[in-house]
Design a protein around this nucleic acid. Structure first.
Lengths: 152, 152
DNA sequence: TACACATAGTTTAACATTAAACTATTACAC
DNA sequence: GTGTAATAGTTTAATGTTAAACTATGTGTA
């Protein structure tokens, strides 16, 4: 039926990997985009929410560490932290022991915002993941952890 | 030990969902970023590769359809297709039956490029997914498909 | 001390991405 | 037929994102 039979030219192993990658990507984007709509309704971007959520749950840290946790480049962290600072959600505190570092910490306004938005994101995630059983959620976690870290 | 015990304030159900979401995101980003390095070495961005790969495997289509498949906005497709057209990788063909549409199709240069780069991406994916058994890859596909589409 | 090297952060150019407002074209109801 | 709604695509403003070159600061060694 299909005019394009190029996918048939790949081995079974290759098709299985391609299919897994496409499904993984689509699931991540689909859930992520439903989160984004909620964040936007509260005036935050995905990156801003991600940075604020990390600072909220893991405490103050420097930009480099934040970028490492969020898998983002240093230049990108400068941009995102600039915009959060302009919005009054975070402060940059120069580390006087080692002046290369800033300690990034949430302001009261930032704490209030993340405490307002995070429960709504959590509710959305709980809803999205409710199509999987508890065991399936644990299974997905385990598979993704190994895939992300390269652990057999 | 940890100064921030906020995560302990969530229910077991909530922590399981949060953990699954973090792991899913990290795995997708980790694999995606390894793909990106390869694409960049060949002068393509992730979006450009994604559009060309879709056109290659599914045949010519209009921008809207391409955007639907890639989960991207219409405005974004204009940008990406503009840049691909400027690079000589695709052509816009006006549909004379319904002049609202363009048919986007790969040029010979585009076909040559995707046939050069796609095998390297496929090799990288095969390598990254090799930490999972065949059964685990199939299991991951199934879980992600249901999560992405909201199917119990 | 001086100099090489490493690390944190910034800047720039190029491209990606969205929402929203917009144009052009087609479909449909009356 | 005419007007209204729907659809494909474009534009704009704002933000995100990277790589690469850069500044500032600290480390370590000769």
């Amino acid at each position: 039926m299909c005019m394009n039979n190029k996918l048939n030219s790949y081995s079974e192993d290759q098709r299985r990997v391609l299919n897994a990658w496409v499904k993984l990507n689509r699931a991540t984007e689909s859930v992520g985009q439903s989160d984004r709509v909620i964040m936007n309704e509260h005036g935050l971007t995905i990156s801003q929410f991600g940075a604020m959520e990390t600072l909220y749950h893991k405490g103050p840290m420097c930009q480099k560490e934040l970028g490492d946790k969020l898998l983002r480049s240093g230049g990108n962290m400068t941009t995102v932290v600039d915009n959060l600072e302009r919005g009054g959600y975070i402060n940059r505190l120069r580390d006087e022991n080692d002046r290369r570092f800033f300690k990034i910490q949430l302001t009261q306004k930032g704490i209030k915002k993340i405490e307002e938005v995070f429960p709504k994101i959590l509710a959305n995630l709980t809803n999205r993941f409710s199509v999987l059983t508890k065991q399936e959620q644990l299974s997905l976690s385990g598979l993704c952890k190994r895939l992300g870290l390269g652990i057999k």
